[in-house]
Design a protein around this nucleic acid. Structure first.
Length: 407
DNA sequence: TCTGCCGGGAG
DNA sequence: CTCCCGGCAGA
């Protein structure tokens, strides 16, 4: 659906300047319906391109598409590099529009990718392409590609109210713009030794662990509970220099969609003087798997409980959330997904959409947080195997209840 | 037998 | 604290 839409929009646009085919290609590849989006969008429910970051490229790229048949691969870079003076203005406008649209539906990234079933391998790749090229780890790469799509739809359905996402989307964009090539480094550097709050909807980054814990405890867990003391760990992650190695990292650069959405809703979370927003930018461009992973691990946890609560239609109580809720959407992805994906998909879904309500729901989170016996979900061990133990979530590594793939 | 994770321990 | 692991219980 998204695909169709996108085509129409962009295609039309394209035709004016160039061949429609190119336009189409674009659309398919990158799912750029931005144009379209810009026009129509003001409502949350639209599917966005696979990566907020990507949005730009498209727009910009479109204009220079002559040169590039498949901008997707380098989508991130294009926008600024090849911009022609004329297009600048357009770009700005586009950018504004995109931002606007994004703001409404941050989570949006994947639909395009998913829908274009028929598309040749190349086409599907928009998101996947990137992944694959750098993705040494086939797993993650496609996983996310396919997985992420899931969330978006869910978002659409589930989340009628995307209030917060907005910030997020905007942020992403801004960051991209602000932290370009050189800038990005600077931004990145900030991330070193920082701790990022993984609480859904809160992307807060603090430089001190203690501070972060406090932040989590007070803002998210609630200062009272004793348990919370122990739990803070799971709600934040250390942001290290790893993020930086944009190019080098073998990992796929999946669009940061899901994660970012979850991470960067600062709006609600109080701003600390210490706050730094590097990660998101980094992620948006090319997130090293490691980082992403880290985030995800915690995300699962953070988002999980809430998600359950939120799902409107789902009667899912804390007790049996995953199975019921999960199956449906994931299936879409399932096609190419491997066994592992289940958990990941879940995560994806949660992380993105959840946010807005997260905040409100957060208080109640306590219920679900504790573990039950064995769930169906595959745990890190199964997913990664013992050999790749280093990729397990910390809990699993320590033989504790898995945080990444909660039941 | 494998897997997930509690409970406990070492550093 | 962080990091491990013995060992139990469920599948």
């Amino acid at each position: 659906m998204a695909a169709v839409k996108s085509r129409a929009g962009p295609g039309a646009m394209q035709s004016a300047s160039e061949g429609e085919e190119e336009g189409l290609i674009y659309m398919q590849c990158c799912g750029q319906e931005d144009v379209d989006a810009q026009k129509h969008r003001q409502h949350p429910v639209f599917q966005s391109p696979s990566g907020s970051g990507r949005v730009w490229p498209t727009t910009a790229a479109v204009q220079q598409s002559k040169t590039f048949t498949f901008p997707q691969s380098s989508s991130v870079d294009l926008p600024y590099r090849y911009r022609s003076p004329e297009s600048v203005e357009m770009d700005e406008i586009m950018a504004a529009m995109v931002l606007t649209s994004l703001s409404c539906s941050p989570v949006v990234q994947s639909p395009p990718q998913r829908d274009p079933l028929p598309a040749a391998p190349g086409d599907m790749e928009c998101g996947g392409g990137e992944l694959s090229d750098s993705g040494s780890s086939g797993y993650w790469s496609w996983d996310h590609g396919s997985v992420s799509p899931a969330p978006s739809p869910s978002v659409t359905e589930t989340d009628g109210s995307l209030g917060q996402p907005v910030d997020e989307g905007l942020q992403m964009e801004l960051e991209q713009g602000g932290c370009d090539e050189p800038e990005s480094r600077r931004c990145k550097s900030l991330s070193r030794g920082a701790y990022r709050c993984l609480w859904p909807g809160c992307g807060k980054v603090l430089t001190s662990r203690v501070g972060m814990k406090r932040h989590i405890r007070i803002l998210h867990l609630g200062s009272g509970s004793e348990q919370s003391h122990r739990e803070e760990d799971f709600y934040y992650t250390e942001v290290s220099s790893e993020e930086e190695p944009t190019t080098p990292s073998p990992v796929p650069s999946f669009f940061s969609g899901p994660w970012s959405s979850c991470s960067s809703t600062n709006s609600q979370s109080t701003p600390g003087p210490q706050e730094v927003l590097p990660p998101s930018s980094v992620l948006s461009q090319s997130a090293p798997s490691s980082v992403w992973q880290i985030h995800t691990e915690h995300l699962y946890q953070a988002c999980t409980p809430i998600e359950v609560t939120m799902f409107p239609g789902s009667s899912a109580s804390c007790d049996q959330p995953p199975p019921a809720g999960l199956q449906p959407r994931p299936q879409i992805t399932t096609t190419r997904s491997r066994s592992v994906s289940v958990g990941e998909q879940w995560l994806q879904r949660n992380s993105a959409p959840t946010r807005s309500q997260t905040m409100s729901a957060s208080p109640s989170r306590g219920h679900c947080s504790f573990r039950k016996g064995r769930g169906e979900a595959k745990k890190c061990r199964k997913v990664y195997g013992v050999e790749r133990r280093d990729q397990w979530c910390t809990a699993c590594r320590w033989k504790k209840a898995c945080q990444r793939f909660p039941d």
